[in-house]
Amino acid sequence: MTAALHSAAVAIPARAGIGLRHPHYREMLARRPRLAFLEVHSENYFGAGGPPHHYLEQLRADYPLSLHGVGLSLGSADPLDRVHLAKLKTLVERYRPELVSEHLCWTSVGGMHTHDLLPLPYTEEAVRHVAGRIRQVQDTLGREILVENVSSYVQYAASTLSEWAFVAAVVGEAGCGLLLDVNNFYVNAVNHGFDPYEYLAAMPAERVREIHLAGFDRAEACLVDTHGNPVADPVWVLYRDAIARLGPRPTLIEWDTDIPPLDTLLAEAAKADRILERHHEPGRAAA
């Protein structure tokens, strides 16, 4: 792999990658399977040293990297957490990742952190608020970030926009990229009773830099986005249609609870790759 591929300006190939989690560190180093990229949770590398960096530095030398934050709380009514953002900036400068993403949600208020990806009310006020903060983050990091649509189990009475209109408005007003999580909007479509194809049609294709796929669980009251199962069949169908509409995009297999053997993740990634291959435009080089 050339050094140039590791500069932040170079795009990740539109193929499948996996979320790198610590149970797989050693096996990944030993096998170095063919994957378009690795994604890690930024906060897992906020420490200065130790085993997390020991493994990531070695793997990063061989794979394009995406940093995916879970704790910046972009949608919070609190002032932006400058300490957290400074740690993210340090990490971005250390690894020079191809992609940096955060969630289009809030996780904290009044200095209390829930570590849960909570939905925002879909209002014009929330669009302006979160878009302004995304711009602040991009200014501080000196680069584009992606924001990811989140799953949700409740809808606010205060919402005046559809979720898809909200996501498109935020991305447009912030001038950021979109990490489209197909599982998340499928889960929301089931939970809230909307048509996922209406959602997909509203997504700004030119802003979609990455796609996430994961598995959900079925609880009594709703689908729950646990990242603890294989990608569900209807989500694969929706993904295939999303790729047909948006074009091929780097696609991540995410698995965070009951983490399975590495081969299970690689098989899911291969499944995404087969769909991506069918939609690669003729003459467009896929790495």
Partner: peptide
């Protein structure tokens, strides 16, 4: 639940 438009708000908030 006054914040939410969901009929099964209690059960769904319990997930969070």
């Amino acid at each position: 639940c006054q914040l939410f438009a969901d009929s099964r708000c209690e059960a769904r908030f319990a997930v969070y």
